[in-house]
Design a protein around this nucleic acid. Structure first.
Lengths: 232, 232
DNA sequence: CCCTGCTTGTGAACGCGCTCACGAGCGGCG
DNA sequence: CGCCGCTCGTGAGCGCGTTCACAAGCAGGG
C-alpha cells in the first residue's frame, strides 16, 4: 500500500485539496466518471506529479492505466477534509463584510451554514441578513453551545478583533477565520487563519510596480507566473 | 552594501511586507520612533531573523545596536511595494461581496480607491454603494482607460468570472484579484491572485477533523500552530 | 492467455525558504 | 579616547515542498 491513512498531510497539500474537490465535483456534474492526474492538473493549473503526490497522501485510490474514479475520489477527499458533516460557523461583526458573508449562500452550500451572526451595536441587532437574524454579542456563547459551533469568523473592525477572538475562544470555538487586519493572540491549540483583502492588493501592487520599473528601465517585462487553467 | 535595490524579492517576503508595513504604521501612530527586528517580529508573530532577512532585501536601512527608524522604514517599504501612489481598482460584480468591497473604506485608506464598480444586471446599475455609483458592464473599458486602472477585482458568481476576467484584460487591466471559486485563464503577463473564502474554511475543517479524530483515538491533540502575536 | 499501451505511485534530486549563529559596526559611557 | 553592549546583516546548514523519471501494474485486444 502507499501512504496509509491517518498520516500527517503537508499544509501545502491541505490547501490544495479543497480546489481539487471543487473541480472534481464540477466534473461529476458534467457527467465525467474518471479523471487522470494530468486532466485534474490542467483544470487546477498545476503539475500532474503534484496532483498524484497530493492524492497519494490520502491513500491509494487510483487505478494505473485508467486514472481516478471521480465519485469515489470526491468521497475520499471530503472525508479527509472532514466534510462528511456540516460545520456551523458563527460570524462576529455585522458590518459590510459580515453582512456579505452571511448573505453569501456559498458558505451553506459548501458545508458551512451560518449558525448565527452577532454584533455589539444594538442598532444592528434583530435585522435579518441572508435569512439569519443578527443577535447580541452576549448571545455568542449560547449560540456556540446550542449549535455546537467550533469555527468562528471575525469580521469586525481592527480595534474590536482581539476581543471578538477572546470571546469566541471563551465560548468554546477552536478555529478562527480572521478578516481583521490584526495579528490575533490566542491560546495554544486554537487554529487561526487570516485573510487580509488589502494585503492581497498590496502584493499585486508590488508586481505592478516592478513591471513599471522594468519597463521604465527599458528592460523586457518579466513574465509573471500565470495559471494555465481549463478552457472548458 | 547589502542586497542592492532592484533585486528580485522572494514571494514569501513580498507577502509579509504589507503586514510589516501595517505594524510599522501603527507603531508610528503610537509615537514609536525606532524598532528592533525582535520587536517587529513579536508584533508580527514571526522569527526575528526572518524580519531582518526580509528587510535586507529592500536595502540596508537598519542601524546596528539601535534598530530601524520607523518613519524611514515605512517609506522604504511603501516604495518597494509601489505604494507611493494610489492604485485605483475596478470591481466587477455588485453582488454581496462586490458591495461589501466597495463599501469597505479600508481599500481607499490603504491606497486602493474604488475607481468604479460594474454589474451586468441593469437593476443594480445606478445604485450607489460606498459613494460609488454602479455602472453598466459595457462601461468597464471606459473606466479603466479614463482612470488608468491596472488592477481589477472579480466579485461575480463562478459562472461569470471567466468572462469578467476576459473583459478586464481586454480593457487593459494587468492584475486581477479573483474572489470567484474558479481557476481563471489569462494571457501570459497578467498577474492573478485568488482568494476563496470557502477554501479557508475547508482548511480549518481539516484541522478540526484531525483534532476530533485524534481525540477519539485517545491520543493527545496535536497542538496546531498558533501565532504568538502582540498583546498590545 | 499474453502482449501492448497507458497511468499511477514513489524514490531521488533539486531548489527555495527558514533558522541559526556570528562577525561587523554603531552608540554611549567612563 | 577606548571599551562595552547591543543589534544588524548574512553565510551556512537544514528541512520542506516541488519536480523528475521510472518501475509497477491494470485494462483491453488479439
Amino acid at each position: 500500500m502507499g501512504a496509509a491513512n491517518g498520516r500527517r498531510i503537508p499544509e501545502a497539500t491541505v490547501a490544495r485539496l479543497p480546489e481539487y474537490l471543487r473541480l472534481l465535483t464540477e466534473s461529476l456534474d458534467a457527467g465525467i466518471a474518471n479523471v487522470s492526474s494530468e486532466e485534474l492538473a490542467d483544470l487546477a493549473g498545476v503539475n500532474a506529479a503534484k496532483v498524484r503526490k497530493d492524492l497519494s497522501y490520502l491513500g491509494t485510490y487510483g487505478t494505473r492505466g485508467v486514472g481516478y474514479e471521480v465519485e469515489y475520489l470526491i468521497y475520499q477527499v471530503r472525508r479527509e477534509l472532514g466534510l462528511t458533516h456540516d460545520w456551523p460557523v458563527v460570524i462576529v461583526g455585522a458590518g459590510n463584510l459580515g453582512q456579505a458573508l452571511a448573505g453569501y449562500g456559498g458558505f451553506g452550500q459548501r458545508g458551512f451554514p451560518v449558525a448565527g451572526i452577532v454584533d455589539i451595536d444594538d442598532a444592528k441587532v434583530d435585522s435579518v441578513i441572508g435569512g439569519v437574524r443578527v443577535r447580541r454579542l452576549d448571545d455568542l456563547a449560547a449560540i456556540v453551545r446550542s449549535q455546537q459551533v467550533s469555527i468562528g469568523v471575525v469580521a469586525t473592525p481592527a480595534g474590536a478583533a482581539q476581543e471578538a477572538a477572546d470571546r469566541l475562544v471563551a465560548a468554546g470555538v477552536t478555529s478562527i477565520l480572521n478578516f481583521a487586519p490584526v495579528v490575533l493572540t490566542v491560546p495554544l491549540g486554537i487554529n487561526v487563519r487570516k485573510v487580509d483583502l488589502a494585503v492581497e492588493l498590496q502584493i499585486l501592487s508590488y508586481y505592478e510596480q516592478r513591471r513599471a520599473a522594468a519597463a521604465g528601465a527599458g528592460l523586457a517585462a518579466v513574465p509573471t507566473s500565470s495559471h494555465r487553467g481549463a478552457s472548458a
